[in-house]
Nucleic acid binder design. Structure first.
Lengths: 354, 354
DNA sequence: CTGAAAGCGCTAACAA
DNA sequence: TTGTTAGCGCTTTCAG
């Protein structure tokens, strides 16, 4: 009897040998496709069981030229916004028999680049990028690859990559209109570094509201934060120094709002009685704070799901005739814009004088 | 000239053909190992560049019998405790040239099982399990596999798998002693489902403090939560009903503490003036709450790092003579216990009468 | 219904 | 210094 080497997992030929059939037959039994005589099948199955055989995904991938793996690149897994995306992408992928190779770029462009190379090397079937700091050169590079790529809430300047964005501009406008409607006129905004495209869109949305003509005499002051609670504290201080009279602060995200809240409290300013604060993303945390943070909600899970579906769709279409990527890449359905929603909570109210 | 099929990425033979050498030579140039004549090398490199060639990790894995991929199974990526672990594991893995296949079991045992199978099929080089709900049968199953496995802050009953745990019992004791020292005598604990081993250890630690004899007349009431902020609200209510006089609530984790905080506030009970609250894990959130939550901190990143190191070490040792896994598996250094630390913040104080 | 054989892309002896 | 060759574990024609 031919013994298995210790420490090596069983291969298809181990099974074949034990069942007294060819590897082709074992393969047929495993895949369940072609007809195999019942007794033969039973014998193979018994051998599989006895050996604890599991087909090697690696060999399979090499042969079938598909890995059933999707790469997912996120900006920062420690930011509670991303786990939501990760969960959504993973759910959708798993449902369709794919796994997810998670790449946390930790807000470091060079690390992101390393990961992108890695994903290509690993021959993932597709890549989802939810990295707000995606650099332009990455975009070009990505567009030049044969792997399908989709962007989630980020853009790659120049490259026509399919993307699903939430309507950041509308979100900015929504947040601004909310406090403007409440009666605030001196408002501040704590933004994020400009390499983050969403940040710019949100500012634009706020500006839209200010410029709409519906609210006369608005004064808007914008400072830059870093999207983190800690960084927001300095930004809040800076904002208050430049515009001591602000009664409403719109934040780039909920983490920023948390920092603003803490800073204001430290300064003895009450929220929302003295100053209103609006967050963005509506992460679970927003509802847990005291006061609960008014925030703009994105459809995170829809975004993750869409991204995966789009990717699989592309992968399926790839080998079909006439499906030129470039052509497809320029069709307008390639970028979808998801609506956002304002969740009004306790951190916003009328200005002190109202 | 032999054209590349469109949509297929370049292979080593494409490069070889273009450079006018054999695939072996290309392989040598890529790996940089054996000596290759400078001009040959340059030619190959030029071809690599021109073709945008990247070696297939899949083929490499098949040949070398190693994937340079680690599987990481976590209970619930949406719980802020886990991103810390993920980050740590990913950092350590990346540093050593490995990638991480993330599996979020979403607190669902069957999903966890699916993932474990998947990781085996994918022939990952090792598996890190940070899943508090790990079932006993999984443990047995894992121990029977040839792939190295390490556990992070969880145990598999029966199976002697290497593990890194934080000292949950000491943590429970620390939390209890803190409020006991403050003068509290009627204390409550909101635990987690018993399938979670850490939950039991923490209860035991609390009990240790109560039974130490140093604090006479202590009354401890334990209720079960689910480790989530929402679930904790019902648990807090239940606790307050069973023991209306509690002045301190020790929580299984920070999310539970958040729920307790909200519930108490809703009831008009002030924290810490009326009731003290202690969390566990010291996730960033804990410091952001109002009041900031006193919490027991674990050395999350040390745990992740250790796990990866242990795994790689095992992988390296695997093919060495005399490294019988079973024997190794029974050595006591196989489980390390990391100390915890209490972070005292604003959610705890002396009882109302003190 | 089943087996033989080729080959996915790569590496590593072994020759030359 | 370089090429030839075998083979990693699997699937899939193509014969039988």
């Amino acid at each position: 009897m031919h013994n298995l080497e210790v420490g090596r997992s069983a291969t298809i030929s181990d099974v074949a040998r034990r069942a007294g059939v060819s590897t082709a037959t074992v393969s047929r039994v495993i895949s369940g496709s072609t007809t195999v005589r019942a007794t033969t099948r039973a014998g193979v199955l018994a051998a599989v069981e006895a050996l604890g055989y599991r087909p090697s995904g690696v060999a399979r991938s090499l042969k079938l030229r598909t890995t059933h793996t999707l790469g997912l690149v996120v900006t920062d897994i420690a930011n509670p916004y991303f786990p939501q995306i990760v969960r959504a992408v993973e759910d959708a992928a798993l449902e369709r028999g794919h796994t997810v190779l998670l790449c946390d770029s930790a807000d470091d462009p060079s690390r992101e680049e390393t990961y992108l190379d890695l994903l290509i090397d690993r021959r993932v079937d597709g890549i989802v990028i939810a990295s707000s700091g995606l650099q332009a050169r990455h975009g070009d590079w990505l567009a030049s690859r044969t792997v399908p790529v989709v962007l989630v809430n980020c853009t790659a300047r120049g490259a026509a990559l399919p993307a699903i964005l939430s309507d950041n501009r509308a979100g900015g406008r929504l947040a601004a209109e909310h406090v403007l409607d409440l009666g605030h006129r001196r408002i501040g905004h704590i933004s994020a570094p400009p390499r983050n495209a969403a940040a710019g869109d949100r500012v634009a949305g706020i500006q839209d509201a200010v410029d709409s003509g519906r609210y006369p005499g608005v004064e808007l002051t914008v400072v830059e934060g870093d999207g983190q609670a800690e960084g927001a504290e300095a930004a809040t201080l800076a904002l208050l120094e430049r515009a001591p009279g602000v009664t409403a602060i719109l934040c780039y995200n909920d983490l920023t709002a948390v920092g603003a809240l803490r800073t204001l409290r430290g300064l003895g300013r009450r929220v929302p009685e003295d100053v209103s604060v609006v967050g963005y993303d509506d992460i679970p945390l927003a509802a847990w704070m005291e006061p609960p943070i008014t925030s703009v909600a994105q459809q995170t899970s829809a975004m993750g799901r869409w991204a995966v579906e789009r990717l699989l769709e592309r992968m399926a279409g790839e080998d079909e005739p006439g499906s030129d990527r470039r052509q497809l890449g320029e069709r307008s359905e390639n970028v979808v814009l998801l609506p956002v929603e304002l969740c009004v909570r306790g951190s916003t109210g009328p200005p002190p004088w109202a």
